[in-house]
Design a binder for these strands. Structure first.
Length: 712
DNA sequence: CTAGGGTTAG
């Protein structure tokens, strides 16, 4: 009797236990937390609180429902644990973005009684890859070999991916080549990684090889491959794959991710109509393909279409806006100095969950800095709960732009006290700030820190920045030696940087040397001749100047004509140098002369005659400066009463602003600001209450299609 | 309990 009872009891218990396990697994699969919590209650009520398998399922369920805290509680209270318990907890942390914690659980497991299995290894390897932690990845690889899991294909794939993500390409390839068994994922991992390393050609070769070996590609293969073409900027190969997909009748073309990659390929190659037509074919468009296309139009300068798409996206209500779209849009508005539109997106961002994404916040910081509102930017920066290296870099760049070099250095150091390691861009930002503020010693000190930083190698742009730093300080020889002795091959740009410095300091001899190098290296670029001839002009060497002009003519080279434009009442007005074709040309000159007079009187403005580049009398030099295209554009804006309206005046240029115009604009901004202070005191309350309602009066000169070092 | 893809900010 009792035996039968026990049997029945055991049977009953088995069923109960199995039902609970199934329930938990379904909650895990569907991430249904509420049901999972109920199931947890049932587990405890039915006396399974110490059951190993059910507890393992609970850990997994909480992990999949993004409740790592609960997962840990379960794990912590378990009377006994096995490899699955440990691995489930590691996964929970990894899948919820805490790769560090995942690895520390792995380390703890090492001193426990449980032995790792293939699941444990692939999870810990992935965590190392996410963190880019080559050291721990290598150690784990060693353990895989020791425990005999190196030849398991899933583990092998994880090892390759880990090495690739840590930038250890040689090790990744070695692993790939020595693997006894490969599967489709092995090939896909390799192809995907070659795209990251911007080695698209290798990806294409691998694709061919895998087909020769009879492996059938899937949608993962194609998306990676298309991205490889993208980094190659090989629209040709991309189109071939596109055609390949069409002829083979693959269903992938309407599939979201493959088509999404194709859209992005065409966007990056500026084939917007192709991108659009692929986009239209996608059966289930997702937010990613929308983002690509919107950004594509914006980068082409077609803001109107970009905004149309954005409106469509919003009314379709099919997709929750995410951080990618928002930060892209804000970035676009920042580039166009469209503060109002940027503010609207900022306001929108505060209303949706992804609006708090760090990249959105960063783009907002950058926008306010670029649009002339550094205080707002600083306020938001201080309020940010978490900052990353980009957030700090934005602020460092901002300081640099406003001539606050010391503050930039302070921020750079504070960032590291906050345990955020600078990357290459952060170094570049602080070095640039040093350069612009003449902080020679600080710059050199930071550069030497970069050189000994084991994670990073100084790139050409860092050297260029140091050349600029030394050059501006007049240390032309040192700058030249830096270029000659650096471990990288100098490009034309870095020599041009030195040449610019030669102009500031009148280093004729070095300029001649550099000029020769540049003509050899980049002889078809007019910029080089213009810069050289400017230097000769400064020194009064008119003959050499003339010789260069003739050389340019003989070579049939032409300089891009400098242009400026300004938008007034939704209409864009273009100006060339000395342009007198505008109907209001007389009024423009009148206003400009008036401003010039005030500036001479009030702030001691002296026209920068050295920026006039022909050998003529000073008087006509002054005259030639007065008709620079950017001044004409400003004149038009002033003539239209933009000053009285207290509207920001935005001038766009295709080339870099000339030195005298820079001085002129600075002076003008000061006059306008002082006007602003007098009249806006009374408005202060209003301003504070309605941030988006008023704009400061100031001038923003924005250089589009930047062509540095070339002046008019 | 495990491995692979497409969009963003400096």
């Amino acid at each position: 009797m009792s035996h039968v009872m026990l049997c029945g009891g055991t049977l009953f218990e088995m069923n109960q236990r199995q039902i609970l396990a199934n329930l938990l697994r379904s909650c895990s699969k569907n991430s249904t937390l509420d049901k999972g919590l109920q199931a947890h209650g049932a587990v405890l009520r039915m006396g399974f609180g110490s059951d190993l398998m059910l507890n393992n399922d609970l850990i997994d369920m909480y992990g999949k429902c993004s409740r790592t805290g609960f997962a840990y509680d379960v794990f912590d209270k378990m009377p006994e644990r096995n490899v699955v318990s440990w691995t489930a907890l590691m996964c929970a942390y990894l899948q919820n973005g805490n790769a560090k914690r995942c690895l520390s659980v792995f380390a703890q497991m090492g001193v426990s009684d449980s032995k790792p299995n293939e699941f444990t290894f692939s999870t810990s390897l992935k965590a190392s890859g996410v963190l880019g932690a080559a050291e721990s990845g290598m150690q784990i690889h060693g353990l895989c070999a020791k425990f005999g899991f190196e030849c398991v294909v899933v583990v092998g794939n994880s090892i390759i991916d880990m090495y690739a993500k840590c930038g250890k390409n040689i090790q990744a390839t070695r692993m790939f080549e020595t693997m006894p068994v490969r599967n489709l994922i092995t090939w896909n991992v390799m192809i995907a990684r070659y795209t990251v390393e911007e080695n698209g050609k290798r990806a294409l070769l691998l694709f061919r090889e895998m087909q020769e070996r009879g492996e059938v590609p899937d949608d993962y293969t194609f998306t990676s491959l298309l991205k490889a073409c993208n980094t190659l900027e090989a629209v040709q190969q991309g189109s071939q794959i596109h055609a390949f997909l069409i002829t083979r009748g693959f269903p992938y073309l309407v599939q979201t991710s493959v088509a999404g990659a194709l859209v992005d390929l065409y966007v990056k190659c500026r084939h917007l109509s192709e991108a659009r037509s692929v986009f239209e074919q996608i059966k289930q468009k997702n937010i990613i393909s929308w983002s690509s296309l919107i950004l594509g139009y914006a980068q082409e300068g077609n803001l109107e279409e970009a905004m149309n798409l954005f409106k469509l996206l919003r009314v379709s209500m099919c997709h929750q806006l995410d951080g990618f779209v928002l930060s892209s849009l804000i970035g676009i508005f920042a580039d166009f100095a469209l503060v109002e539109q940027g503010r609207q997106i900022h306001a929108l961002a505060t209303k949706i969950p992804s609006g708090l994404d760090i990249s959105v916040a960063n783009s907002i910081l950058d926008m306010y800095l670029k649009c002339g509102d550094p205080d707002e930017s600083e306020r938001l920066f201080n309020e940010m709960p978490t900052k990353n290296v980009v957030s700090w870099t934005v602020m460092i760049t901002g300081c640099g732009k406003h001539g606050l070099g010391k503050e930039a250095v302070r921020l750079f150091n504070r960032m590291q006290l906050d345990n955020i390691e600078p990357d290459g861009v952060a170094y570049l930002a602080v070095l640039t700030a040093c350069s612009h503020s003449r902080l020679i010693k600080e710059g050199q000190e930071i550069f030497s820190r970069l050189c000994i930083d084991r994670r990073l190698k100084p790139k050409l742009e860092h050297y260029a920045c140091m050349v600029d730093l030394l050059g501006r300080a007049g240390q032309l020889e040192e700058a030249k030696n830096l270029i000659m002795n650096m471990p990288l091959k100098p490009n034309a740009g870095i020599w041009q940087t030195l040449l610019s410095a030669c102009r500031i300091h009148g280093g004729i001899e070095i300029a001649r040397e550099v000029g020769e190098i540049l003509i050899r290296l980049d002889g078809d670029n007019t910029v080089n001749y213009v810069m050289l001839s400017n230097i000769f002009a400064d020194a009064g060497y008119w003959k050499e100047c003339e010789r260069l002009r003739k050389l340019v003519k003989a070579k049939g080279l032409r300089k891009e004509a400098g242009r400026s434009w300004v938008e007034i009442d939704k209409e864009v007005h273009f100006f060339y140098n000395g342009d007198d074709s505008h109907p209001n040309v007389e009024k423009i000159h009148e206003v400009l002369k008036e401003m010039e007079k005030r500036m001479k009187a009030e702030m001691g403005y002296v026209p920068g005659l050295r920026f006039a580049l022909h050998d003529v009398e000073d008087e006509s030099k002054e005259e030639s400066l007065r008709v620079h295209s950017e001044k004409l554009a400003i004149g038009l804006a002033l003539a239209h009463g933009k000053l009285e309206e207290k509207k920001t005046i935005r001038i766009f240029k295709n080339l870099r602003v000339c030195g005298d115009c820079h001085l002129f604009i600075k002076g003008l901004s000061k006059i306008l600001k002082s006007l602003d202070k007098e009249s806006s005191r009374a408005d202060e309350k209003h301003l504070a209450a309605n941030l988006s309602g008023t704009e400061q009066t100031n001038l923003v000169s924005s250089t589009r299609n930047k062509n540095k070092n070339q002046k008019e």
